[in-house]
Amino acid sequence: MFSLYRCLLRLYPSPHRREYGEEMTAVFCEVRTAMEKKGAVTRGIFWLREIRGLVHGAFAEHVRSWAGSHSWALLPTRRFTMHSEFRFPKATPILMALILAGTVLAIEKAQAISASLPHINPPVGPIQPERLTFLPPVLLMFAVAYAAGLIGWMILFALKRSGMHRLSQVQDSAGRE
C-alpha cells in the first residue's frame, strides 16, 4: 500500500513533489504507524481518505499551476457549505425494503407471465457489431445517471421539507402554549 501512496504522489506537479514529496511521505509513514494499532475499518477509512486527499490535492495543484492565483475561482471550496445534520427518517429502511420486495415480486411475476405465453415472436438474431456506436450508450448512461440523481435529490428535498414543516408546526404550537 505504501507503493500506492508513492504512485499517487507522482500525480502532483514535479515542483510540488520536489518541495513537499519527501515530507508528505514521512508524515504519511508516521500516521500509518499510528494506524497499525487501530481496527481494519479505521485503517480502511484512513486509506480512502489518503487516496482521496492525494487525488484531489494533485488536481488542485495542477489547476493552481495552470491558472495561478485565480485557481480559487475554478475549484469548488466548502467555504460556504452548511451541513444541516440531515438524517433519514427511521421509516426509510422499511420503505426501501418494501420497494425492493415490490420490485423483486414484479420481476418474478413478469417472468411467470413471459413463461406462460407462447413464443410467437421470432428469436432475435445476433446484434451486428458494426451497428453499435460508442456515443448513444454513453449518452444514455449519462441521462439515466442524471435522472437517478434528480429523483434522489427530489426525494431528499421532499423529506427535508416535510421535516422542516413538521418542526415549524411543533415550534408554532410550542409558542402558542
Partner: peptide
C-alpha cells in the same frame, strides 16, 4: 476533522 496528508500539504502550501 481528520486531514489527509494531501489536504494538509495543499493548505500549508
Amino acid at each position: 476533522v481528520l486531514l489527509s496528508t494531501g489536504t494538509l500539504y495543499g493548505a500549508l502550501r
